[in-house]
Design a protein around this nucleic acid. Structure first.
Lengths: 213, 213
DNA sequence: ACAAAAGTGTTGCCCTTACACCCATGC
DNA sequence: GCATGGGTGTAAGGGCAACACTTTTGT
């Protein structure tokens, strides 16, 4: 097995949240070449004998301070030329996270800045990360009606209007309010809380996801 | 980038067909260690700067003589210990192929035998290939009602009963004949041919998939 | 009082499901 | 002529989509 040339192997993480009424992607600004100054998905080299999901979890935490439980494998990218340093393949993961739980304090010299970027207004990206994000948004569309999964992008408590807006952005189409509410309740993963959200107008009931062990 | 230890990177192909009224998986018998004598999915090392799908296509052809156009990426496996030779990750692909188009004449000294194995009666397998097959069968269940995709496992012309049997095996549940036919036609990917299949009993009309460019 | 978001039911339609008998051929 | 798989239609029920007005708060 030693006779074969080997590629560098990395993991990249597409982390998505719902913040300020919009879908946002977690990006870091690279401090060093290649692509110094450009924005990129958090990620890095897999360590020897490290499970891939663990590597993704670790890199995400090192670079952004974000701790995530459920990473889902998305796709593996290995096209020639995707990394200017040479032959490299990357396993991409997708995670939905609550933005309020995130401090975003990285501990990595290679990172200049960390930011939740609006998913539909992205800066120029390093490597082939545009492709990775395309795949991820596609996956999001396909799984939008898995409410228990989608809801992970929301804070612990949220209004039904927020949930609906998230659902519409993820799925790529608008839906009727009453139909949505009926459908959402029927999914059986919502729990009404006593709390209300007070704001500009009529207060809204807050809901949370039923914890699924 | 040179300072990192690198894993061996391979591809494996789960090729499925519908043969003798049953789902069958293409397996090769390994001629050399590790796991000499055991059956395994076709696959092998990715060559430097080779696109992953190309590598899978090439390895499948070298080991089994099977040419396949549409390989779909399935999942990437990288758990420690999955290869006794050391750190290795594998990108698994899934392909549905018509068995009649397959000659199964490999050109590889490492392969002792090639066979379409009944998917529900598999021999002991090398590496973590049981896991890969589990994932693949899961994917099959999820996509069973994509008829244009599923139909690739059939020969160029087939009867509706064959299609239904394939559908039931893939999806894991039986369906009513009349309902299935109505639904299958409604998918819009079937074309009736003039030909009939003559056999033990009343002849059956043959259908084919509409070619999707 | 008015602007703005929260909240709430009913109806029609289509799609899905359940279900049973005749037909054409080989032996 | 009989055994075997091929082939066909209908009716009832459930789920989905369309649709508008009242309520509650902030200003």
């Amino acid at each position: 097995m030693t006779e074969h040339e080997r590629p560098a192997v990395t993991v990249d993480v597409f982390a998505l949240t719902f913040l300020e009424n919009d879908l946002r992607v977690l990006l870091i600004q690279r401090a060093r070449p290649p692509h110094a100054g450009h924005w990129a998905l958090p990620g890095g080299f897999v360590e020897p004998h490290e499970p891939l999901a663990k590597a993704a979890e670790r890199e995400l935490f090192e670079e952004t301070g974000l701790k995530v439980n459920r990473l889902e494998q998305l796709h593996t990218f290995g096209d020639p030329g995707r990394d200017p340093r040479g032959w490299a393949i990357s396993i991409a993961f997708i995670a939905l996270v609550a933005a309020d739980a995130a401090r975003l304090i990285g501990d990595d010299e290679e990172v200049m800045a960390i930011q939740w970027h609006p998913a539909h207004d992205l800066p120029p990206l390093a490597f082939d990360h545009v492709q990775i994000i395309d795949h991820a948004m596609q996956r999001l569309r396909e799984r939008a009606d898995d409410l228990a999964w989608l809801g992970q992008a929301l804070p612990a408590r949220f209004t039904l209007s927020e949930l609906q807006r998230l659902y519409e952005l993820a799925g790529g189409q608008e839906v009727d309010k009453r139909n949505f509410r009926r459908w959402a309740f029927a999914q059986g993963c919502l729990e009404k809380t006593e709390a209300m959200r007070y704001g500009d107008h009529r207060p809204a009931h807050l809901y949370r996801l039923k914890s699924v062990p």
